[in-house]
Simulated scan of single mutants.
Amino acid sequence: MRSILMTQSPKTSAQLTPDCSKCVGLCCVALAFDRSAFFAFDKPAGEVCRNLDDEHRCRIHSRLEETGFRGCVQFDCLGAGQRATALFETPRHDGAMFEAFSRMRQVHELLQLLDRAAGLPLDAEQRRRCEELRAELSEDWTLAQFSVLDLKALRQEVMSFLQTLQKLVLAS
């Protein structure tokens, strides 16, 4: 896995790295979790986690695992939190922001797949198409642009491209 990560372009590599300091705790508010071996209590989607402070920082971040929040340690938003937060002039915990976070997470999952594909021995045309798709998903959108982004069509484009690489994947 290390070799694949090293082939990421600097832009997508940085985009896929979570930076909680540039997020408003979206995963701690937008997502639901159930009391289990991974979470110490139930929390419905849209409710602020009681461990989140007024500055959108986790009060128990340094001891998540010991306090029953192994799920938080294992969760990776792939950088979607800070990128969704940046879309809003005044970030807030509401449906529009939660929707942007969910959609951005899907965009970043596609970027992650394309970054992994870039680590394959692609021919010139495949590499060009991979970079084209990565650039499209790495766009610096405004909120208005992102809100109307046809994510279903983009997903279909990426998945169609990835299917063309099936022989490369099987050969490696």
Rank of each mutant, 00 (worst) to 15 (best):
H93M: 03
Q74C: 10
F69Y: 14
H56K: 12
E65Y: 15
G68K: 06
F69T: 00
R63H: 14
A84N: 04
A86E: 09
R83F: 05
G81N: 02
T85C: 06
L87I: 01
D54E: 15
R59M: 11
D54I: 06
F75E: 09
R92V: 02
V48C: 11
D76C: 07
R50W: 13
R50G: 08
F88L: 13
E65G: 11
Q74N: 15
C58N: 03
V48E: 14
C77L: 08
V73F: 10
C58Y: 04
E89H: 11
V48L: 11
R59Q: 14
E55Y: 13
G68P: 00
L52I: 01
R57D: 08
L87T: 00
C58A: 02
T85F: 04
F88N: 11
C77R: 03
H61K: 14
L64M: 15
A84V: 01
G68D: 05
P91C: 08
H93S: 01
L78F: 13
R59W: 09
R57M: 07
R59G: 01
C49H: 10
G68W: 11
A80P: 03
D94K: 05
D94W: 09
D53F: 10
H61L: 07
G95F: 13
R59K: 15
E65D: 15
I60W: 13
H93C: 02
A86S: 11
F75W: 12
A86H: 12
H93Y: 11
T67Y: 13
C72T: 03
G81T: 03
Q82Y: 03
L87E: 01
H56I: 00
N51I: 08
S62C: 07
P91Q: 11
L78T: 06
F69W: 14
N51A: 09
E89V: 06
A86Q: 14
L87K: 04
H93F: 09
C49E: 11
L87D: 03
E55R: 14
C49L: 10
T90C: 07
H61C: 05
E89Y: 04
A84Q: 03
I60K: 14
T67K: 15
D53E: 01
H93W: 14
Q82K: 09
H56V: 02
R50I: 11
E55I: 05
E89L: 10
I60P: 03
G68F: 10
F88Q: 09
G79Y: 05
F69V: 02
R50Y: 15
Q82W: 06
G79V: 01
T85I: 00
G81H: 02
L87Y: 08
E89I: 00
H93K: 04
I60C: 04
V73K: 14
R83G: 06
R83N: 05
E89M: 00
C77H: 05
C49V: 08
H93D: 07
E66N: 05
T90V: 12
A86G: 08
R57W: 07
A84K: 06
T67A: 11
T85A: 07
H93T: 00
F69P: 01
F88M: 08
C72E: 03
E65V: 12
L78S: 06
P91K: 10
R63G: 09
G79T: 03
G68N: 05
E55V: 04
F88V: 06
V73M: 12
L78H: 08
R63D: 12
A84C: 06
E65F: 14
H93N: 10
G81A: 09
C77I: 05
H61W: 12
E66R: 13
C49G: 08
